[in-house]
């Protein structure tokens, strides 16, 4: 459908006013809201995410595209709710206790929203207990822990251990990321997934939710 391709293209270029106009037009034309979401908005963010992974676009382009997506989703939301369209999964995300850095965490959040996931953002300096409580309250599929500092990344193990102590470790997938984090570290603490960049994290999260 041409209008959905147009939405996708304008979204990739970060053209918020045009995306809003086209989403409204698509609704007015009676196109299924889920189709507008998936084949217009999320499809556009998919392209942006792929280009980001390949270093063809950079963070600002991603954020500007995400702004356009969010503007489109805001128009679409009442129609999605009335049509009973649900998110593709739920992730709880935060920067671990003792660490106040949130750039990477915010990028991952934006990329996951671009995949159609509901993301509960707990902010920075988040304790293992806070991760756990939010995951239980929201019936989350995934918990995502971010850290920038080598001195705080060990807190990720506490998160993994806390879910184990509570007997809920098999209910959620725990993803870890951040500049000092590696696959070896992920394996050593018993987390489920490490990705090197935000776009790959979103891909992995979606795959967990669809498994």
């Amino acid at each position: 459908m041409a209008i959905l391709e147009e939405i996708s293209t304008y979204l990739q270029n970060g053209r918020t006013p045009k995306v809003k106009e086209l989403v409204q037009q698509a609704i007015d034309e009676g196109i299924d809201p889920a189709k507008i979401l998936n084949e217009g908005l999320l499809s556009g963010m998919d392209v942006v995410g792929e280009k980001f992974k390949n270093n063809e676009v950079f963070v600002p382009e991603v954020l500007i595209a995400a702004r356009a997506m969010n503007a489109g989703v805001a128009i679409l939301k009442p129609y999605l709710v009335s049509a009973g369209v649900e998110s593709k999964g739920c992730a709880v995300i935060g920067t671990v206790k003792g660490d106040l850095h949130d750039i990477g965490k915010n990028l991952v959040k934006m990329m996951m929203e671009g995949k159609g996931l509901k993301v509960i953002d707990l902010g920075v300096d988040v304790s293992a207990e806070q991760f756990y409580n939010a995951a239980m309250e929201n019936n989350a599929n995934i918990v995502c822990c971010s850290a920038l500092l080598t001195t705080t990344m060990s807190e990720m193990k506490n998160v993994v251990d806390y879910f184990t102590e509570k007997g809920q470790r098999d209910k959620v997938k725990i993803m870890v990321g951040g500049a000092p984090v590696t696959q070896n570290f992920c394996d050593s603490i018993g987390a489920d997934c490490y990705t090197a960049d935000a776009a790959s994290a979103a891909d992995a999260a979606l795959a967990f939710c669809q498994a």
Partner: peptide, 16 residues
């Protein structure tokens, strides 16, 4: 430099 947290969105939108 790379802007922090909330400042990042503001900076990026201003660039655009």
């Amino acid at each position: 430099a790379i802007p922090d947290g909330d400042g990042m969105l503001d900076f990026v939108y201003r660039i655009a």
